[in-house]
Design a protein around this nucleic acid. Structure first.
Length: 287
DNA sequence: CCGACGTCCTGCTAGC
DNA sequence: TGCTAGCAGGACGTCG
């Protein structure tokens, strides 16, 4: 569900609520999250103070004052909020951290694709996240990104969803970036020119920046850390707009399934195969 | 090695 | 009105 802009919004909302606060108690109503909550973590955490709230890709990192960390992923429907004790606890709230100021850090996740996991220190976190995550969008080197894209036989859509290529991009922002770059989701990396790939690289940053400025997109479940909805859903050019006219050229937006995900695009602005396939470095011998 | 696909889970909705 | 199949923003394990 939440992609980088939504997670960033949650982090910004939760940070001022959490930093400096101490965990007084933890109630766990569901252990079987994607990564099961270990009861031993509960005992360890009582009495610890939050030092920082950070984000890496779609992961939320909560630093504690014994240098251990909680690492949280919102999956598709996860919500991380800080609310008053008196605020009613909604269904599917799996973890509830009682803070020292009559407020509670709550993790709620209807579909339970999300998780909260405890790590002993930063090294353990880096070992966990480091190997699977590529650079944040702003750290992407256009040249390097283009090389990676052009080496791949996968669709551009699949490449964008690959967290080791551009960490934090998900289905919505992949579609939006492809439209802004004028590229078809089914076009393969190998069919993509360097100029196109670099344009795509810039489009990713643009769309992510714009979405963060509007506090992300609320389609259905997503809310920020203070319970507020996002505003970027009103800026979608293709996502969820199938059957409606393209805002640029008036052609009807289409939806297809690419890399197992629904992919929205304008058939006119995002035509395929604009570039001839790059010659293979080592062409296969003809029998 | 790379890429495609299924699976985890619940809730909503389009379509009959 | 009532039922159900299909689909939903993610990540990862497995298989070819």
């Amino acid at each position: 569900m939440p992609e980088l802009p939504e997670v960033e919004t949650v982090v910004r909302d939760v940070r001022p609520e959490l930093v400096g606060r101490t965990v007084r108690a933890i109630s766990v109503s569901r252990l079987s999250l994607r990564r099961p909550w270990q009861p031993a973590w509960t005992d360890r955490l009582i009495g610890l103070r939050f030092l920082a709230v950070r984000r890496r890709a779609k992961w939320i990192l909560l630093d504690l004052d014994d240098s251990s960390r909680l690492v949280c992923h919102l999956g598709m429907t996860g919500q991380l909020t800080v609310e008053a004790d008196s605020s009613p606890v909604k269904d599917h709230t799996h973890l509830n951290f009682q803070l020292d100021n009559a407020r509670q850090l709550r993790f709620r996740d209807v579909r339970r694709f999300g998780s909260v996991e405890w790590f002993a220190d930063e090294t353990a976190v880096l070992a966990f996240l480091g190997e699977r995550l590529g650079p944040e969008p702003w750290e992407l080197e256009p040249k390097e990104f283009a090389d990676t894209v052009r080496r791949s036989g996968r669709s551009l859509k699949a490449i964008l969803l690959d967290q080791s290529v551009a960490a934090g991009v998900g289905n919505i922002y992949a579609d939006e970036a492809l439209h802004r770059a004028g590229l078809h989701p089914e076009q393969t990396g190998q069919q993509t020119s360097t100029a196109q790939a670099e344009r795509l690289c810039r489009a990713i940053v643009e769309v992510i920046d714009h979405a963060i400025a509007l506090r992300g997109s609320t389609i259905r479940d997503y809310i920020g850390g203070s319970g507020l909805r996002g505003g970027f859903q009103d800026e979608f050019r293709v996502y969820g707009r199938d059957g409606q006219p393209c805002l640029k050229c008036q052609k009807v937006i289409e939806v297809v399934r690419v890399a197992g995900r629904s992919s929205h695009f304008c058939p006119a602005c995002q035509s395929r195969h604009r570039q001839p396939a790059r010659p293979q470095r080592r062409p296969r011998q003809r029998p």
